[in-house]
């Protein structure tokens, strides 16, 4: 399968914000936007769904804390109870610091691994750069051409309105 993609290149943050919003309002399907830095509000303008990674982070943190409390209780009160200064074997308050650290460790490292999995980034991966300079100073907007709403004339006018410096149509292989 392949589909036709329309790409417009912009040089200013305001233009990419404007065209992303206009394209979404016109009912066009935005494949993706490429940007050298995170532009404030571009995700809302393009209508990208908010990430669900915070849920993963929360679950991982809970998991880490839970496992650690269980482990500390098991080692100090069940597997080999040792009397330290007459303290009870299940000294809950003394378990708090390590539990907190392990919670942060699980949540932090786990969320980053989840990020790499969901965004398909891994060490040594070859980057497919859509246009020269999208990691430097240019913004690229990619729109699907097959939609019924896609009218080449209108889209070109839109590009002109938002100072596109370059437009291109290309075939893209889809899995």
């Amino acid at each position: 399968m392949s589909r036709r993609i329309f790409m417009s290149i912009h040089e200013r943050e305001e233009d990419i914000l404007g065209i992303a919003r206009a394209a979404r309002e016109a009912g066009l399907t935005i494949v993706d936007i490429y940007a050298p830095y995170a532009v404030h509000g571009l995700d809302q303008a393009a209508g990208f769904r908010p990430s669900r990674l915070p849920i993963i982070c929360f679950i991982l943190g809970l998991l880490g804390a839970g496992l650690k409390v269980w482990f500390e209780f098991w080692t100090t009160a069940i597997d080999w109870p040792i009397d330290v200064g007459g303290k009870p074997w299940n000294s809950w308050p003394a378990f708090v610091p390590v539990t907190f650290e392990v919670m942060v460790l699980f949540a932090g490292v786990g969320t980053v691994i989840a990020l790499f999995i969901t965004t398909k980034l891994w060490p040594g991966k070859r980057a497919k750069i859509v246009f020269d300079g999208v990691t430097d100073d240019r913004f690229a907007l990619l729109i699907v051409e097959q939609d019924a709403t896609f009218e080449p004339g209108k889209v070109r006018m839109l590009c002109e309105r938002f100072n596109a410096v370059y437009v291109e149509e290309r075939e893209e292989e889809t899995a």
């Binding site: 050298p36 571009l42 990208f48 965004t119 980034l121 891994w122 980057a127 497919k128």
Partner: peptide, 10 residues
């Protein structure tokens, strides 16, 4: 890591 600047990633 093959970073492309994709906004879905951003």
């Amino acid at each position: 890591f093959g970073w492309t600047g994709s906004y879905r990633t951003w």
